[in-house]
Design a protein around this nucleic acid. Structure first.
Lengths: 125, 125
DNA sequence: AATAATCTTTCAGTATACTCTAACCAAAAA
DNA sequence: TTTTTGGTTAGAGTATACTGAAAGATTATT
């Protein structure tokens, strides 16, 4: 069981943001101690890690919330959730391939900088 | 020479955004016709494509603007610009590796969905 | 017992990146 | 010639995702 400060420190997510996620229904299942302070158990930590994976791969919070809502409706939404994950996976893969393309473009630019340093090319963007 | 509408249509960037980028000093060198309408030539198109590569790989507009400003100061900033590109390249690579890690996590989740469909696993996030 | 640390809630403020409206202008089509 | 189409500017509005301040409660330390 971790306090908000501990969770914040070892995930890099600020306490503000942790409370915000909970308030928005994005991070459910956070327990409380006798005086009302948040306590994060293994289950909330698993959720948090999963949410961070979705967020970091570009899923909007509204969509993450939708996923969490479906989860809470129970097994009947299993297929919908699976479809969401498949869609998101495709989006990530598209994004990876775009990024590789852009990275090539940036490497090309760097190659030109090397040539400019040796006086072999003119000034370009 | 392309009009704003043409550029918008074949880059997918709205006219609003194209004007906004210009206003913010992010997209320079846009020409005008006799009645003041924007005309995008090869040079502005090259800039635009480069800006889109930077933006799509997560560079904030403020930093793109800084790069453009340095460019306009001339050759004396060549090394600074090269350093910026190197830093950005590293950031992209870090981001790619994080994304691959997260993608694995999502693939794992999908595998669990497949097992749940066959009744081989319980409900999980 | 008082002080400090850490937590709570509510609600307002901020950063970033657009996105749209209003009022106006110019050229082409009906 | 009037209407449509597509452009212009300045400036306000929106979406998303936080981020912070204020006021108060609880627990630990001096």
């Amino acid at each position: 069981m971790y306090t908000i400060k501990e969770v914040s420190e070892d995930t890099g997510i600020s306490s503000y943001t942790l409370r915000y996620y909970e308030r928005e229904g994005i991070l459910p299942y956070v327990k409380r101690d006798s005086s009302g302070n948040r306590l994060y158990d293994e289950e909330s930590m698993e959720w948090l890690n999963f949410i961070l994976a979705l967020r970091s791969t570009g899923m909007p919070l509204a969509e993450i919330k939708h996923y969490v809502d479906l989860y809470q409706e129970g097994e009947s939404t299993l297929n919908m959730r699976k479809q969401m994950m498949l869609k998101h996976k495709e989006k990530i893969e598209k994004n990876l391939s775009d990024t590789l393309k852009y990275l090539e473009q940036i490497n090309y630019k760097l190659a030109i900088y090397d040539m400019q340093e040796k006086g072999l090319a003119k000034m370009l963007p």
